[in-house]
Simulated scan of single mutants.
Amino acid sequence: MKFEKSFSPTGKPQEIRGDGSFQRQINRFTTPFGSKEGELPVEEGRYRLIWCPACPWAHRSVIVRRVLGLEDAISLGTVSPLRPKLDRVDWEFSLDENGVDPVLGIQYLSEIYLKTAPDYAGRPTVPVIVDLKKGEAVQNDYFHLTNYFETEWVPFHKKNAPNLYPEERREDIDALSDVIFHEVNNGVYKCGFAHSQEAYEEAYDVLFNRLDELEKRLATKRFLFGDYITDSDVRLYTTLARFDAAYVTAFNTNRNVLREFPNLWGYARDLYQTPGFGDTTDFDAIKRHYHLSITIHPNKEEVKILPKGPVASEWNTPHHREALSEKEDKFLR
């Protein structure tokens, strides 16, 4: 398992390079799901997925879980979008009765990380999969987690579940998803967490150059690979859903708002109106986390204002994206 220490003795994240650019910490628990020796066994009811509705990395795993019908196979625990005011970065189960997860019996996510690995010194992150038999965190590799749900968890997919990760397209999906991760998903964080003007402007230019390319791509395609939704669409959606509500102001990604990209805006609404996407999107949680919580400067005391917009009803307005496709079913069989 790969591990990179990301905290100083004072509990302050150390994910900033010497040039002021942001470098996300490496995931600690990366054992894949599968049937081979040493892999995590795929068993119904054995695992609990911990997420936060504000987090884009966690959100995409919950979208795929819902779309594929894995709700009964993998239980779900939810942490608050507001960071607890502690001397460390953590997540809290304050939304649950008595402030503890009803299955794990813990108040803070760090408890399960430290129980699993007492030497753990990074940020406890979501999503994370907890093995209920062992009482340990076993998977927090958000980059590959949806792929495991799409491939290794097939025996527990609902009837007629869509194929979000078709084998004949995986190479192309992986290549595009990698670009989306570095330049868009993590690109907004590179803008928001930059500690130098040069690092911020470089990340800003990369982000908007990529959004311009995606805007062009979606001018003739309903989804990234044509008529049907794939895993790449899930990954892009979670950033787009947070763009105007959070990133434009909180992360200074302010060249354009999403609504000024006609194709991306229509595409995002098309996905939002698809079961599994909009019904797992919580704009209030997103705004509370990015605008009221302890995110970028945990020790900075300042007045914090919760933005009034965006209006969620705008996401249900007609998008007319179906005109780009003759297919009624949005999912690839």
Rank of each mutant, 00 (worst) to 15 (best):
A73E: 09
S75I: 11
V79D: 06
P84D: 08
P84Q: 09
V89M: 01
V89W: 02
F93K: 11
S94W: 00
S94Y: 04
G99H: 06
V103D: 00
I106Y: 02
I106V: 13
Q107Y: 01
Q107T: 15
S110E: 02
L114V: 07
L114M: 05
A117P: 08
P118E: 06
D119H: 01
D119G: 02
Y120Q: 03
Y120A: 00
Y120M: 01
A121H: 14
T125I: 10
V126N: 07
V126M: 06
I129G: 04
D131N: 14
D131T: 13
D131F: 03
K134Y: 07
G135A: 09
G135V: 05
E136V: 12
A137F: 04
V138Q: 03
Q139S: 07
Q139K: 12
D141G: 05
F143T: 03
F143K: 09
F143Q: 09
L145A: 00
T146P: 04
E150F: 01
T151F: 07
E152W: 01
P155Q: 12
H157K: 06
K158R: 14
K159E: 15
A161S: 11
A161I: 04
N163T: 06
L164V: 04
P166L: 07
E167H: 13
R169W: 12
I173R: 03
D174H: 11
A175F: 09
V179F: 11
V179P: 02
V179W: 04
I180K: 03
E183N: 15
N185D: 14
N186A: 13
V188S: 02
V188K: 00
G192W: 07
G192D: 01
G192A: 08
H195E: 15
Q197M: 13
E198V: 12
Y200F: 12
E201L: 12
E202G: 03
Y204Q: 05
D205H: 15
D205S: 14
L207S: 00
L207G: 06
